[in-house]
């Protein structure tokens, strides 16, 4: 799994590539924590390059969302979910706790 982070004026874009499972999800959690520790709480996670996402990855996202939404200081949004991953995200009930966009441009534009 590879992660590229880009800082924009109004948000941070985290592009994840590859397989997110229990072996690699700590790296995703670290990348998200590295952003919130800078006092930045508006985060877009781009899934266009993700082939596989297990519940370990979903856990990293929930924890980051809890941190970002605290005191209404921000939000984590998701974008460009491949169909299989979108099905898992929906089954897990994430549609009610994450805004989901079709592409990174729309997601970054939301902030």
């Amino acid at each position: 799994m590879e992660i590229e982070t880009t800082q924009y004026k109004h948000c941070d874009l985290v592009k994840v590539n590859g397989r997110v499972d229990s072996a690699t999800s700590p790296k995703l959690a670290e990348a998200l924590t590295a952003i919130t520790e800078q006092g930045r709480f508006r985060i877009v996670v781009d899934f266009s390059g993700v082939q596989f996402l297990s519940s370990a990855g979903l856990r990293a996202l929930i924890n980051a969302q809890k941190t970002c939404k605290r005191y209404n200081r921000g939000e984590v949004v998701l974008c460009a979910l491949p169909a299989n991953i979108a099905a898992a995200v929906e089954l897990a009930g994430f549609n009610s706790i994450f805004r989901i966009f079709d592409d990174p441009l729309m997601a970054v534009g939301y902030f």
């Binding site: 297990s54 979903l58 856990r59 929930i62 969302q65 809890k66 939404k69 706790i97």
Partner: peptide, 11 residues
């Protein structure tokens, strides 16, 4: 709601 979500049990 988000605050009450446990992050385990999804597997």
């Amino acid at each position: 709601p988000l605050e009450e979500r446990e992050s385990h049990g999804l597997g």
